[in-house]
């Protein structure tokens, strides 16, 4: 996993509630055995019509939004299927972090485990972020200080300290688990 410290980017906004992972990447694009190239299918059915033509007006078909590293979205983002392809597709597209009033459980875990930062905010901060994003301003997301800054808007966010540490150091859970190999063996012997 790559280290995550800080980035600066303008933000794209998709503030709908309950965006499920079938929208983030439809199942027919899961017939793959690797992680690459999934960004091409990110939000596929919202982005392209039945003939594969870009739908006018959809966020990612707007060149300004298309290269944003930060996506501000709505409540319960990533609900539904556990497919980690949703996280891979967002990252392959170039998204580094998400801001939402809440994330679905499995999606949230999948994000942290890949180095995609999910930032949970209250309703008021969410509003302020959307406003700041609409003015095209740059956001600075800094995990070292747990803060997001955009012009006059500054707020800090909470994140599980263990997950934060893994992100900052670019290490993953498996290394941590495998350090406890003896405990695992002892557990197996007991049960």
């Amino acid at each position: 996993m790559k280290k995550f410290e800080k980035f600066v980017s303008h933000a794209a906004c998709l503030p709908l509630k309950d965006i499920d992972t079938d929208q983030i990447i439809p199942a027919r694009y899961l017939r793959t055995t690797n992680k690459e190239g999934l960004g091409d299918h990110l939000f596929h059915d919202w982005r392209y019509d039945g003939q594969g033509q870009p739908r006018e007006g959809f966020l990612l078909n707007n060149p300004d939004a298309n290269d944003a590293r930060l996506l501000i979205t709505g409540m319960n983002f990533g609900c539904g299927s556990s497919r980690e392809h949703a996280v891979w597709a967002l990252m392959d597209h170039g998204i580094y972090a998400l801001i939402a009033p809440g994330f679905a459980d499995i999606f949230h875990k999948n994000s942290l485990r890949n180095g995609l930062l999910p930032i949970t905010v209250d309703a008021q901060t969410h509003e302020s972020c959307l406003k700041a994003a609409a003015s095209g301003t740059n956001f600075t997301v800094d995990l070292r200080s747990n803060t997001v800054t955009a012009d006059s808007l500054t707020f800090s966010f909470e994140i599980d300290p263990f997950a934060r540490n893994c992100l900052l150091q670019g290490i993953d859970d498996l290394e941590f688990i495998l350090q406890h190999e003896d405990d695992i063996a002892a557990f197996e012997a007991r049960n």
């Binding site: 556990s82 980690e84 499995i106 999948n110 197996e188």
Partner: peptide, 17 residues
């Protein structure tokens, strides 16, 4: 349900965090 990274963890360690 778990994501694919966790599938890898369980394959390798039979455990999850």
């Amino acid at each position: 349900g778990i994501g694919t990274t966790e599938v890898e963890h369980v394959l390798a360690s039979q455990c999850l965090l």
